[in-house]
């Protein structure tokens, strides 16, 4: 098998794709946002329950490719209990990792388990798959909360 492909579809990504965590609607969410990639049809909804500045609970549903779905799943797992500011800061680090030049290093300590997405930078057309759930969440945390697209 192609090396880059193996690097992209790591075990953890395939596991989250198959058994996504926090994969359900949330009836009593106080923030929701919808994210949509018109190009490939990825479509997710992210639900958040806030307690002050803290993300008390977070979930998602919808459908998409393995990269976007596992990214959504791992994002929800990473953010439960974090503050809004921490969520933003984490996404900044994730974004740096995803969009770095091929062969360039990134700060693995800052992204934790999300380092499993490090191979995505080899596939520029797939970066927006990995970022879609994040953009959607941040939109949801923003008071205006309208539909997000990757275009």
């Amino acid at each position: 098998m192609n090396e880059d492909i193996r690097e992209l579809y790591q075990q953890m990504i395939m596991d989250h794709n198959k058994n996504p965590r926090n994969f359900h609607a949330m009836a009593d969410a106080d923030r929701t946002a919808e994210g949509y990639n018109p190009l490939c049809g990825d479509h997710f909804k992210v639900y958040v329950k806030m307690e002050g500045e803290i993300i008390k609970d977070i979930s998602f549903d919808g459908s998409g490719c393995a990269i976007s779905k596992s990214s959504a799943s791992m994002m929800t797992a990473a953010l439960k209990g974090k503050t809004r500011a921490e969520a933003k800061a984490l996404f900044e680090e994730v974004h740096k990792m995803l969009s770095r030049g091929i062969g360039e290093p990134f700060d693995a300590a800052k992204v934790g388990k999300l380092a499993t997405f490090c191979g995505v930078c080899e596939f520029p057309s797939r970066v927006k798959c990995a970022t879609l759930p994040w953009h959607t969440l941040l939109e949801g945390l923003d008071p205006t909360g309208k539909q997000v697209t990757t275009e």
Binding site: D4, I5, Y9, C40, G64, C65, R126
Partner: peptide, 20 residues
């Protein structure tokens, strides 16, 4: 397998198809 993932895997084999 989502079409988009299939497209990526085929692309690395030099195969151009459409996913979407």
């Amino acid at each position: 397998a989502h079409a988009h993932d299939i497209g990526t895997i085929l692309d690395r084999q030099g195969i151009a198809i459409r996913a979407g």
